[in-house]
């Protein structure tokens, strides 16, 4: 009975902890960012870099999820992007967070070459009794700009692939 009670307590405690949202602190201390740049924190379960399949406002990664709001305006200062606190309400047991930058019309993106593990305890916090003092900051470590595919070109690509597959099937 005592063992059962102990187990119940542990399970309850685990459920209480795992159900909690986490706060991820991030910044980009890269001076003089390009005009109109905005930023978004992104979670990818595989830990691989985010990929985009269609534009949106904001663009949504095909292999992950946006965390928090897009950061723009005065927060993108001459000294880079100030410290942000983005809340992830999902319980993560794997994967990583990336910072994605978008150009002014969000037609291009680039992502941080460094990622933040879901289990990091320096920049991610789970409780207010022990707030995180660290910050995930890739500084100027970002990939080159790449185009966010537009829905129109994606549809053409899909049509081309389907035609190719059909022709191969006919030959066989």
């Amino acid at each position: 009975m005592k063992k059962f009670l102990g187990l119940t307590f542990v399970v309850t405690l685990f459920a209480a902890v795992s159900a909690q949202a986490v706060v991820i602190h991030w910044a980009v201390s890269c001076p003089n960012p390009e005009e109109g740049v905005s930023a978004q924190l992104v979670y990818v379960a595989t830990g691989q870099p985010p990929t985009y399949t269609a534009t949106g406002t904001p663009p949504i990664p095909g292999n992950g999820a946006n965390i928090g709001a897009v950061v723009s305006g005065l927060a993108v200062s001459p000294a880079g992007i100030g410290r942000q606190s983005s809340v992830d309400t999902e319980t993560r047991t794997q994967g990583s967070y990336y910072i994605v930058l978008f150009n002014s019309d969000k037609s291009q993106f680039k992502y941080s070459t460094e990622s933040l593990a879901y289990s990091d305890t320096d920049a991610i916090t789970r409780e207010i009794l022990a707030p995180a003092t660290g910050t995930f900051d890739p500084a100027c470590g970002f990939t080159a700009w790449a185009n966010v595919p537009e829905p129109g070109s994606l549809a053409l690509l899909a049509l081309g692939m389907a035609t190719l597959a059909l022709r191969r099937k006919k030959r066989v």
Binding site: V23, A27, S29, S77, P78, A79, G80, I81, G82, R83, S85, V87, I128, P131, T135, D137
Partner: peptide
């Protein structure tokens, strides 16, 4: 230096338990 990552911070507890 102007980037708030380098600034002193105040954290206030809100009624929903967030900071």
């Amino acid at each position: 230096n102007g980037n708030t990552k380098t600034s002193d911070a105040i954290m206030v507890v809100e009624s929903d338990g967030s900071l």
